[in-house]
Simulated scan of single mutants.
Amino acid sequence: MDIRQIDFARMEELAREWEVDLPIEQTQAWARYQKTIEDRTPWRCLELVRDGCAVAVLSLTDFETHGYHYLRSWHGPVWGSEPGEELERTALEALRDYVRGEDGRVAFVRLAVAHELDVTRPVLSTRPYNQTVVIDTTGTPEEILQRFKKRGRRDVRKSLRECKVAFADETALARSSFAEHYDVMVETGARDGFTPAPLEDYENFIRILGEDHCRVFAGRLDGQVVTWTIATIQGTHAVRYYGASRTGLARTLATDGLIYFECCELARRGCTSYDQMGIGNDFSPTLKGLNTFKTKFAEGVTDVAPARDLPVRPVLYGSLVAAKKLLRRG
């Protein structure tokens, strides 16, 4: 297995040959966005070659944190065809050796790995998932709705019938100022136990990805934003990347109505699928609280390659694991 440094144009060329859409995180626009975040730097785009033919590509970003560096590739590598366990292992070993030879600072690489291989480890941080819910957005609005589970159809219809929230695409407004929407995210974080990224991160996300690849949808009650979503678009695939809602709106089903509105708007823009970004199971138990809500929008779930760590400097990586265990005990 050979590893070659390439550019985004080459990644896009190979994706067209393979007839696959690069995930938004594997695009040049995403790399430009990452440059705006402190301690993150686009590293390289790579091509994995076997017997003279490219089999996968990936874009990597360098993270500097707590005195060490690691590389991350969101939803990468992107494969020309699904790899078997042997090919994936060979590719990871070649990538590990390449990174070790090119950048001695890197402790590990975090990337999407379908098989549970002994060359990888569970991630040190973040919450990976190996299943998601993908909504089929082909056809008419009624056809989209009919593919929801029964309780999903019920809740959306109740929302449309009883909810007084007005839904709209607010991309242009959010590009000029995201402050009003951000206030809702702050409230969501306080309720659900997380700290949102700084306001400028969301503003940069919307601005740099651009309106063709990033849309902001919102629901307003009496003129005030009460629920919103940032959705990314790449090819015919959309992802519900961020979302927030005011406390106490579950009874009004505002977010149910908003997601259905999003499905219809994204379909109008040519999207055929809408990924809800991760649900819980035994692999990712901390995400199980999302399942009741997300799974009602599709009859089944979709398997995806979860994020795993590929140690590049095993001794350093082992010390990081040990430090994390000590921190948990404390």
Rank of each mutant, 00 (worst) to 15 (best):
D62H: 07
D62V: 05
D62C: 12
D62G: 03
F63M: 06
F63Y: 15
E64Y: 13
E64W: 12
E64D: 11
T65P: 04
T65L: 11
T65I: 13
T65E: 14
H66G: 14
H66A: 15
H66M: 14
H66P: 02
G67C: 06
G67L: 05
G67Y: 09
Y68G: 02
Y68A: 08
Y68Q: 05
Y68F: 15
Y68K: 09
H69F: 04
H69S: 10
H69W: 02
H69A: 03
Y70K: 01
L71M: 02
S73W: 05
S73R: 03
W74T: 05
W74D: 07
W74F: 09
H75K: 13
H75T: 07
H75A: 10
H75Q: 14
G76N: 05
G76S: 07
G76Q: 06
P77D: 08
P77I: 07
V78H: 02
V78T: 07
V78E: 01
V78F: 03
W79C: 04
W79M: 04
G80Q: 02
G80I: 02
S81N: 10
S81C: 09
E82T: 13
E82N: 13
E82W: 12
E82L: 13
E82A: 15
E82M: 13
E82S: 14
P83S: 08
P83K: 03
P83Y: 11
G84C: 14
G84W: 12
G84L: 13
E85G: 08
E85N: 11
E86T: 14
E86N: 13
L87S: 12
L87N: 06
L87E: 15
L87A: 15
E88T: 05
E88L: 11
E88W: 12
E88Q: 15
E88R: 10
R89P: 01
R89K: 13
R89W: 09
T90V: 13
T90P: 02
T90Y: 05
T90W: 06
A91S: 15
A91D: 11
A91H: 10
A91W: 07
L92R: 08
E93W: 07
E93A: 10
E93V: 14
E93I: 14
E93G: 08
E93T: 14
E93L: 15
A94G: 13
A94Q: 10
L95Y: 06
L95P: 09
R96P: 04
R96T: 03
D97I: 07
D97C: 11
D97Q: 14
D97A: 15
D97K: 12
Y98W: 14
Y98D: 08
Y98Q: 06
Y98E: 09
V99E: 01
V99Q: 02
V99K: 03
V99A: 04
R100D: 05
G101L: 06
G101E: 12
E102K: 10
E102S: 11
E102P: 04
E102Q: 14
D103E: 10
D103F: 00
G104Q: 02
G104R: 01
R105F: 03
R105G: 11
R105L: 04
V106P: 00
A107K: 00
A107H: 00
A107W: 00
F108K: 12
F108M: 05
V109S: 04
V109H: 01
V109K: 01
R110V: 02
